[in-house]
Structure formats: C-alpha cells, structure tokens
Simulated scan of single mutants.
Amino acid sequence: MDALTLLKSRNSAAKLCAPAPNDTELQDIFAAASRAPDHGRLRPWRFLLIRGEALSALGDVFAKAAMERDPAVTEADCQRFRMQPLRAPLIVVVIARIEDHPKIPVIEQQLSAACAAHGALLAAEALGYAGIWRTGVNAFDPNVHKALGLERSEEISGFLYIGSRDGQAKPLPVLEMSDFVKEWR
C-alpha cells in the first residue's frame, strides 16, 4: 500500500486479536514514531510496552486506581477495569516527557508525543496490524502513573491498543474538505 492510501484509509479498530507486532516489527514502528515533529530535538516521548501477563497486571492497576478514585465503586466496575487491557495483545503506553524549556512550550512537547503516537499507529497499519488510541480516566490518574513508573514531569498521551484486526474495518465517512478547510485572504 502506498503512503497516501495508508494515510487516507487508516481507521481505529476496537476489536483486536493476536498476533501483535513482533520485536523486529516494533523496531520499525518506533523508528517511524521517532520521526514525529520535534522542535529542539527534545524527543519528548517514550513508550512502555505491555503484553503477555503484564496485561492482566495492568488491569489490576486500573481496578485499584478506580477504587482509590471512588471507594463506592462496584466489583462489576472493577472487573470491567481489569478486562480493559485484555482487549488487545499489545498496549503501547505513549508517555510525554515534559521539559521546562525556555524556547519550547509544553504544548509543543505534548503535541510532539501525540504525533509520535500517530506515527506508531500508521506504521502498525502499514505492517498489516491495526490499533486504537485510548485515553480515559486511567490516562490521567496519578495512581496509574505511579504504578507505571512515570516521573513527575511525565504524562500519558494515550494507550495504543495494537494487534490484528478482528473482523472488517468499519467504513469511514468521506469528509468534504470544504467542511473543515477554508482559505484565509
């Protein structure tokens, strides 16, 4: 598939199954992610791979964080949080590393990490895999951050659930450029 076709056709896949990219393919995915726009070459991102038994451990982290946020949370809710990471054979946690920089504002660093995440999703799709970018309450929970070993200057940009598409891709609407592109004069 040529690059432009890939860019115009990639869409999120909520249903994923094994296999996930292997270590060699992950090197290609992260090489593509590392080409994100990066003012000052700060490389304000890092990635945390979660796969295998660690997926269940992440589910336990999510459930424990839910109980910390709301002591009245039900066991059914906790079980739902435990199951979330099991939706894919691989989760890539995209972490923005924010630096106090005199010339590069925080938003540029956050956007650079987001571009790296998008690059990873595009590369996974180019290799024949699929994924979905999820955030939700756990991306912003300090207990989740602590459990995942984030530093004070780091934040989660998203959880990339990656694997093989389970079923057909949902059709995406064709957008009219005129709906979101205007020429300033």
Rank of each mutant, 00 (worst) to 15 (best):
A31G: 12
A32V: 15
A32W: 05
A32S: 13
A32G: 13
S34K: 06
S34E: 13
S34P: 12
S34I: 11
R35K: 13
R35Y: 14
P37M: 12
P37W: 10
P37R: 06
P37Q: 08
D38H: 00
D38C: 05
D38W: 00
D38Y: 00
D38E: 04
D38Q: 01
D38M: 02
G40A: 07
G40N: 03
G40F: 04
R41A: 07
L42V: 01
L42I: 02
L42H: 00
R43C: 05
P44Q: 01
P44W: 00
P44C: 03
W45H: 01
W45D: 00
F47K: 01
L48S: 07
R51F: 11
G52Q: 03
E53D: 08
A54H: 02
L55R: 01
L55T: 02
S56Q: 04
A57W: 03
A57D: 09
L58I: 09
L58Y: 06
G59F: 09
D60K: 09
V61A: 12
V61Y: 06
V61S: 10
F62Y: 13
F62K: 03
F62V: 11
F62R: 03
A63H: 02
A63T: 05
A63D: 01
K64W: 08
A65S: 04
A66S: 07
M67D: 07
M67W: 05
M67E: 09
E68A: 14
R69Q: 11
D70Y: 00
P71E: 14
P71L: 13
V73Y: 08
V73A: 11
T74D: 13
T74R: 06
E75F: 14
A76M: 14
C78K: 14
Q79W: 15
